Computed example of a mutant assay.
Amino acid sequence: MKLIEVAPEDLTLSSELVRSGSAKSFEDRLRSSLDEVGLAEPLKVAVNPDGGYLVIDGALRLRGIKAIRERDPSRFASVAAYLLDYDIRYEIRFQSDIYQDLLPSQLATLVEHLHKAENVLKVDIARYIGVSPATLRNYTGLWRLMERGGLFARIVELMDVGVFPSSNPYAWLRLTDEGLKRALREKFAEGAEPEVWIAAVADAARLGGTERYPLKFIEMVTAALPPECFHAGEDVRAIKRDLGLRRAAGQATQRKFKEARSHLSRVSKESKEPVLVAAAKSFEEYLS
């Protein structure tokens, strides 16, 4: 896939490729994120036979960008997008839906399984899904939160139900066990036990509760804790290892690709998980 910059007015939408039923609250949060942070996730587009570019994936992001430009035309003069083949637009849309329908914890588990058990390079996973390397790194962070267990795993549960954003797991991962307890008790649970608060908030969210915390608030709260609340050991070294691996990923040989395809073929034939089988088959074709 080639990353390009496209003027918003050159992008068009097709009703056949737009997901229906999106909640207004989600669109509002997405627009706020675009306004504050910018476009973290490039769109997926194809050259339209009638001219311009057809949006394969990213209709809501484009709507949010256009709404912001109506207020301030100087914003988003161009939009980052992955350029794909027009003939496979429906296949790409279907593949995107598979991943978008997964919870953050499920996607983190899938990415980690493909990387560790099936030897698929993370740079290839990011390229296939159509996300930035930074976004894929977040899935690694989510996986580490789940691996640490306890309250850290419960944080991911709150991400799954939308109470906490999943876009910066390292804000939580850098904390010690006691640091996490202190942050939750003092800044969120109003003195109550964190486990009790998490259970109540998660249950309310599943029933349609609207309590949501923006990313900037999460980062501000965790950064304001005293030094003894931060963990600066293995997690920091692991983050540096991730950065080094991503820098070296471009040096992968054909032998590694062949091994990855072999592992993916085995998964697609032997796994009993439909989502994993679909992902393995698609990756196998992508690496061919």
Rank of each mutant, 00 (worst) to 15 (best):
A7F: 05
P8E: 04
D10E: 15
T12R: 15
S14F: 02
S15K: 14
S20E: 10
S22C: 00
K24I: 08
K24Y: 09
E27L: 13
E27G: 00
D28R: 15
R29C: 02
L30G: 01
L30P: 10
S32V: 09
S33P: 01
V47D: 02
G51W: 07
I56N: 04
K66E: 15
I68V: 14
I68R: 15
P73L: 08
P73H: 12
S74I: 04
R75G: 06
R75K: 15
V79H: 08
A80H: 05
I92V: 15
D101T: 12
L103T: 12
L103A: 13
P104S: 06
L107Y: 07
L107V: 01
A108S: 15
V111P: 01
K116N: 09
K116A: 11
E118D: 10
E118N: 08
L121C: 00
R127Y: 00
I129G: 01
S132K: 06
S132F: 00
A134E: 13
A134S: 15
R137S: 14
T140F: 11
G141H: 10
R144E: 14
L145E: 03
M146E: 13
E147K: 14
A153F: 08
A153M: 08
R154Q: 14
V161C: 14
G162S: 12
F164H: 11
L173G: 06
R174D: 01
R174C: 04
R174A: 07
D177Y: 05
K181Y: 03
A183W: 00
E193R: 14
I198K: 07
A200S: 12
V201T: 15
R212P: 05
R212I: 13
Y213L: 14
P214E: 09
F217E: 12
A223Y: 00
E228D: 14
R237E: 12
R237P: 00
A238C: 02
G244I: 05
L245P: 00
R247G: 02
R255V: 01
K258L: 09
E259C: 02
A260L: 07
A260C: 02
S262R: 11
S262K: 08
V267I: 12
E270R: 12
E273A: 03
E273W: 06
A279I: 02
E284S: 14
E284M: 00
E285Q: 12
